[in-house]
């Protein structure tokens, strides 16, 4: 079997594998928010950006080749990841103290792992209305990071095409495929993969919040995914 080198460790891969898929299968993790082994790649979040033979590339969309030298946990790449994560935070309204996903949220856990303490950028404070029209689910667009996991899950796994991404630039947002544009008038069901896959607190089940005690939530009980490679101290002075 062919191998590439991930931070010096040989990772085996099969023909057609992306760097991300091969690394994940080999038990090596590369930071990501929009990738899921069950679905096709998207390349939306850019967290998995690595250096492949010296060039920046998204690990989730780059095909593995024998002998590639891939750098992942470097101070430079983690500094880029920190800025990307801060961009996602200021783009939405991430008030974790009142979010039912807190402690169970991939965005938040990524921020913790990168030692993120501040927002760095100006807050955009979007004011998109909540969609609570569905009997079992609700959708807060102000927490959506446009990872398209729900879009792909609905298309590839559920065969329903409930979601799409619409708009341009900073006003790009998640759309619901129903004449009214509302979740309650779509074919989405709480048991669909698309309803369960959201990595943040954008699509949530109704009447089930705050059920897990503090200390026992997914990212409370496990250590943060990985300790940061860089000295995490740089806060506001890394311009």
């Amino acid at each position: 079997m062919s191998h590439f080198l991930l931070d010096g460790t040989p990772v085996p891969f099969a023909a057609g594998d992306t760097l991300m898929a091969a690394a994940q299968r080999a038990g090596q993790s590369i930071a990501h928010l929009c990738w899921d082994a069950r679905l096709g790649p998207s390349g939306a979040c850019r967290l998995c950006t690595v250096r492949v033979d010296g060039r920046l590339a998204a690990a989730c969309t780059t095909h593995a080749q024998a002998g590639q030298v891939v750098e992942n946990r470097t101070a430079e790449l983690d500094a880029r990841r920190l800025r990307l994560t801060q961009m996602l935070f200021v783009e939405g309204n991430h008030f974790c103290p009142g979010c039912e996903k807190s402690g169970d949220c991939d965005l938040q856990a990524t921020a913790y792992a990168l030692g993120m303490a501040d927002m760095h950028f100006e807050l955009l404070a979007p004011q998109r209305p909540v969609d609570a029209s569905h009997p079992d689910l609700w959708l807060d667009h102000n927490r959506c990071i446009l990872c398209k996991l729900c879009v792909r899950a609905s298309h590839e796994a559920d065969g329903k095409n409930v979601f799409a991404i619409g708009g341009y630039g900073a006003s790009t947002r998640l759309l619901v495929n129903a004449p009214s544009g509302r979740l309650g008038d779509s074919a989405l069901q709480a048991s669909d993969l698309a309803a369960r896959i959201c990595p943040v607190g954008a699509i949530l089940p109704k009447r089930r919040g705050f059920a897990v005690p503090l200390g026992a939530r997914r990212y409370d009980s496990a250590a943060p995914p990985e300790a940061p490679a860089s000295a995490s101290g740089d806060r506001d002075d890394a311009h």
Binding site: C96, S102, G103, G115, A117, P224, A231, G233
Partner: peptide, 13 residues
């Protein structure tokens, strides 16, 4: 010393 937030101590909630 320059304060460094310990990543294990960082919580937003």
């Amino acid at each position: 010393r320059t304060p460094h937030a310990d990543p294990a101590e960082i919580r937003f909630d």
